[in-house]
Design a protein around this nucleic acid. Structure first.
Lengths: 121, 121
DNA sequence: CTGCCAGCCTACTTTTTGGTAAGGTCTGTT
DNA sequence: AACAGACCTTACCAAAAAGTAGGCTGGCAG
């Protein structure tokens, strides 16, 4: 049992899961990793199904956990930009692996995601 | 949007998450990866906090998803053994990475997990 | 023959998570 | 002036996930 920030973790895996657990976190992170879609609405439009509540909630947690940073581009017309922090980028191999594993799995199921990508969306 | 087995996924990352999502799956998997503790009670005893309900439920799902296999060692005194399938082993880089990332993070927080491992448990 | 341990399963409750819908500011467009 | 779009927040509710507690079979040890 590891104690950290008033929470208990059973092992290092558990610690990492504390950051990337949840339905949308890895999706948002790997999205920021893959594409450079960074504005709020670009992320929203590229994660079909996510509600604005979830998006802003998760982004906030990711900022708090310092995996994502937000840059305010302008105040008068409020414009922002989200991007992976150094810490967030340190998880890059994970985003890559998880995505490739998914692609490989889909291929085994007869779905060529890369080829047919334009169809999905 | 990807359709597969009556479910909808937004991208390959989402597909992978379908297998390893949830609070205990990665914990169980990486446990089977790291140690060779394989019996039901060994897994239970090494994942402090997991309830038997969760353990058997998750094991069942992992079997269904073919990431884990179960071998019945004996019937009279019912004894079993769980281990990673080929499919489950194909996620090994993930277990390793997630664990190492956690260890690295802990180190940054002043906790030397590897050195003090004996203290946790 | 009692109790304990392996290996589960089930009913029930609580907690967490996620979804809906609405509101609110500001700014540009028509 | 009306509307739309970027960028959120909040209140309320439903669903899903997880926790609690107990039960059940069958050996084996004392």
């Amino acid at each position: 049992m590891i104690q950290l920030n008033n929470k208990t973790y059973t092992c290092p895996v558990d610690v990492t899961l504390g950051f990337i657990g949840g339905k949308w976190k890895l999706l948002i992170l790997s999205h920021l990793h893959q594409f450079d879609r960074k504005s709020y609405s670009e992320i929203r439009d590229n994660l079909p199904g996510i509600s604005e509540k979830m998006l802003s909630q998760q982004l906030k947690e990711l900022e708090r956990d310092q995996l994502v940073e937000k840059k305010i581009l302008a105040l008068k017309p409020y414009r922002v930009e989200y991007f992976l922090s150094v810490q967030g980028k340190s998880l890059s191999p994970l985003y890559a692996f998880v995505s490739e594993w998914g692609i490989k799995y889909l291929k085994e199921q007869g779905i060529d995601y890369l080829k047919d990508q334009h169809l999905y969306k």
